[in-house]
Amino acid sequence: MFLHPEAQFYLDSLPALSPQEELTFGKDIPQPAAEQSHLAKDQLIAGVPVRIYSPRTLPENELLPALIYFHGGGWSGGNPAMIDGLVRSLVSDLDIIAISVDYRLAPEHPFPAAFEDSLAVCRTVLSGETDLALDPTRVAVAGDSAGGNLAAVMAQQLKSHSPTFAHQVLVYPVSNLTDTNSPSYQKFGEGYYLTAAAMQRYIDQYAGTHDLADPRLSPAFASDLSGLAPATFVLAECDVLAHEGRAYAQALLGAGNSVTLAEFMGQLHAFLNLGTLSTDARAARRFIRAQLEAALISEESYKA
């Protein structure tokens, strides 16, 4: 399997990572000043810590669309500060409010803690019960890795809520906790940054003895996948999660949902975090940003 030259360089330059260091790979890469178009403020929504990014210049008497973002880290690491640059880049120069959720982490807080925190924030935002000048009819949910899992679950849990999400962005999401022997796990389980052993450890810490086929853990097992928000997927080819990401995208499409998928060949899990160092990361961020702009801001989104 051929790695992207940049991915190979990152892999060759990495020291042997401890389990905790695996969770923070690439998340402290400095971001360019051009991505400082939003002001950040830490507060609570429904009792859950969040970081709010608001445009520096707010339009008068106008409700803005919003993006709710869940960080990755195996449900047991990461926080909004570690993905500050990533979230900023997704809404850079757009009149979109971003909400980065600091959900509780395993193993101290196993399932359903992260699920409950995520649901509380999303339900409160969609119900218009925050002090933010946002339009609850134009809210997208997004996340990467374990955060992509939470975003997918939120889209399912709140699909009958009125209003519901206008879009979902799933970046190499965990969608099936029951299968750590998929073709991707077999091919990329060792030597491609995120190992099969590490992924199994994260699953064990988060899910414990809970039924892994519970759709709140494995969104691929939902009995009805119809009627979900249009979905944008970003996948990395050389990733243990690639197979289940493709399978979940195909399942959503088969259920009649709108699905757009971009897979970055030769890339590793977590490549999106390497914004200033990776051409693919920058391209993926621009792609997501364009998808959000089309879904939340364009004239077509108002007509939907």
Score class of each variant (00 low, 15 high):
G147Y: 05
S127E: 15
V48F: 11
I203T: 09
L194W: 01
P65L: 07
R104F: 00
Q267M: 14
G72K: 09
P30H: 04
L44N: 10
A295D: 06
F111S: 07
N79S: 14
H38I: 04
E22C: 11
L67F: 02
I99A: 01
P110M: 00
T276R: 13
T57F: 03
P110Q: 09
S118N: 09
P19Q: 01
R216V: 03
L150S: 09
Q157N: 06
L58C: 07
V240W: 12
G147E: 02
V121R: 04
E108F: 01
P5Y: 04
N149A: 06
G208F: 06
S13L: 13
L67S: 00
L58F: 05
H243S: 14
F233H: 09
S89Q: 13
A166V: 04
S218I: 07
I83D: 04
L134D: 07
L90Q: 14
T276D: 09
S301T: 11
A251R: 14
Q156C: 03
L212P: 02
F271R: 11
P30I: 07
T130N: 13
D102R: 12
G189M: 01
R201K: 10
V171I: 15
P173S: 03
A33V: 14
R138T: 00
D135R: 12
L39I: 13
Q186D: 12
G189I: 09
M154K: 02
Y53N: 02
E6M: 05
S218M: 11
E108Q: 12
E129G: 05
A46S: 12
G128R: 12
P215F: 03
Q43F: 00
P219A: 08
L217K: 11
T195Y: 03
F115M: 00
A222L: 03
L126P: 08
D93K: 15
S226W: 07
A283W: 03
A236V: 10
V171C: 10
L225P: 05
A151M: 06
G78L: 06
L23R: 14
A304P: 00
L132F: 02
D239E: 14
E237A: 03
Q157C: 07
L63Y: 07
G208C: 13
Q43I: 11
L272H: 06
F111G: 09
T180F: 08
S89N: 06
G74F: 00
S182A: 04
T130Y: 14
F271W: 09
H210E: 14
A220H: 09
P219E: 09
D28P: 03
L86I: 08
A229G: 02
A294K: 14
I96H: 02
A247E: 13
K27S: 14
P5A: 05
G191R: 06
E299L: 04
E263P: 08
L296G: 00
G189N: 07
T180C: 12
L158P: 08
E190Q: 14
I297E: 08
E244M: 10
Y185T: 00
H4F: 08
Y172I: 01
A40F: 06
G227S: 04
A46H: 04
D93Q: 15
F70L: 12
D102L: 01
D179F: 06
